[in-house]
Amino acid sequence: MTLDFSVVADAWKSLLFGALGTLFLAFSGMVIAMVVGVMGVVILRMQMRIPSLLVTLFVEIIRNTPFLVQIFFLFFALPLAGVRLNPTITAILALGLNGGAYAIEIIRGGVESIPKGQTEAGLALGLHKHEVFRLIVLIPALRAIYPSLASQFILLTLTTAICTSISAYELTSVGQRIEAETFRSFEVYFTLTSIYLVISLVTMWLLAALGRWAFSYPQR
């Protein structure tokens, strides 16, 4: 067998745009996941029975079913209810909901790690309950759980590869098209593996730098 990487070299523009598509899906999905995560924790802390039960049910369903099944459900079942979404929007929604379920558990764990005395101190200072949650509970909790959220974002970035199953435009779908045209499976998937590795390492470095900037304690 003779290796020929010229087929992927000739398609470098397509691979570049595919990588950008992967990052777009991952970033958009993570934004939705953070919104879902924070809102879910707020609802759980309100301790209203029905909303809390719905949030818990959502988390359990998402965490105990495969992502592939979830994205298929959104793509093929929603049209039966009259909701038709293109593959990209469906992929973003699926990634956001999937990541949101895990974000709820991560953020909830961080919030519950904050000593109750800090909340009581904030209330004693005359802060409103919403201000206490945002300034005294949420921000310190995010500082504590940031590494876990960053790892979840990396995982979500790699999960975008499954979105090719509904023809969403991302790196794996581009690679499959190149492989179908050239029949150079090893060269194509070796290249895809390398690109995903680079994306993960660079994203990990950027998130670490962001964490140091956003959550570092003020210097005296």
Rank of each mutant, 00 (worst) to 15 (best):
Leu207Lys: 10
Ala26Glu: 12
Ile114Arg: 05
Pro51His: 07
Ala208Thr: 14
Gly109Met: 08
Ser167Pro: 00
Ser113Tyr: 11
Met48Lys: 13
Leu197Val: 12
Ala144Asn: 14
Leu125Cys: 10
Val111Gly: 06
Gly29Met: 00
Thr160Val: 13
Phe17Cys: 00
Thr157Gln: 12
Gln219Thr: 09
Val7Phe: 07
Glu187Ser: 06
Thr88Val: 14
Asn64Met: 06
Thr191His: 05
Ile32Arg: 06
Val188Ile: 15
Ala94Trp: 07
Val83Gly: 00
Phe67Pro: 02
Lys116Ile: 08
Ala94Lys: 11
Ser14Ala: 14
Ser216Ile: 03
Ala209Tyr: 06
Ile104Phe: 02
Gln152Met: 14
Leu135Ile: 05
Met30Phe: 15
Phe5Gly: 04
Met39Ile: 15
Gln176Cys: 04
Ile61His: 07
Gly21Gln: 08
Thr56Leu: 12
Gly109Asn: 08
Phe72Pro: 03
Leu125Pro: 00
Phe24Ile: 09
Ala19Val: 03
Leu15Cys: 06
Pro79Asp: 11
Glu120Arg: 14
Val137Gly: 01
Asp4Cys: 07
Leu95Ile: 07
Met46Asp: 06
Gln219Val: 12
Thr56Gln: 15
Ala214Tyr: 10
Ala81Leu: 13
Glu60Phe: 01
His128Leu: 11
Asn64Thr: 14
Pro87His: 07
Ile195Leu: 03
Ile32Ser: 01
Ile154Met: 09
Tyr217Asp: 04
Ile195Lys: 09
Leu93Cys: 06
Thr182Lys: 13
Gly82Ile: 12
Gln47Ile: 00
Leu123Pro: 03
Phe27Trp: 10
Ile92Ala: 04
Val55Lys: 11
Ala33Met: 02
Phe24Cys: 01
Val132Thr: 11
Arg184Cys: 05
Arg220Pro: 13
Arg177Glu: 13
Asn64Leu: 03
Glu187Thr: 08
Pro147Ser: 08
Lys129Pro: 00
Asp10Asn: 15
Ile139Gly: 00
Ala168Met: 10
Ala150Trp: 01
Tyr102Asn: 10
Ala141Trp: 05
Ala11Tyr: 03
Ala150Pro: 01
Trp213Glu: 03
Ala33Glu: 02
Leu97Tyr: 01
Leu155Trp: 05
Leu68Asp: 02
Leu97Cys: 01
Arg212Asp: 09
Phe133Lys: 09
Leu123Arg: 15
Trp213Arg: 14
Met34Cys: 12
Ala121Val: 13
Gly29Ile: 08
Thr56Ile: 09
Leu57Ile: 14
Glu179Pro: 02
Arg212Ser: 09
Thr182Ala: 10
Glu181Asn: 14
Arg212His: 12
Ala121Thr: 11
Thr119Glu: 15
Lys116Gln: 15
Gly110Arg: 07
Ala33Ile: 04
Thr164Val: 12
Ile199Ala: 05
Met48Gly: 00
Thr22Cys: 10
Val36Asp: 04
Ser28Cys: 12
Ala180Lys: 10
Leu78Asp: 05
Gly126Cys: 06
Leu54Gln: 02
Gly122Ile: 09
Ser194Thr: 14
Ala9Asn: 03
Ala94Leu: 11
Arg84Asp: 08
Pro140Trp: 13
Leu95Ser: 00
Gly96Gln: 07
Tyr196Leu: 11
Ala168Ser: 13
Gly100Glu: 01
Ala168Gly: 12
Asn86His: 11
Leu210Thr: 13
Gln47Ala: 13
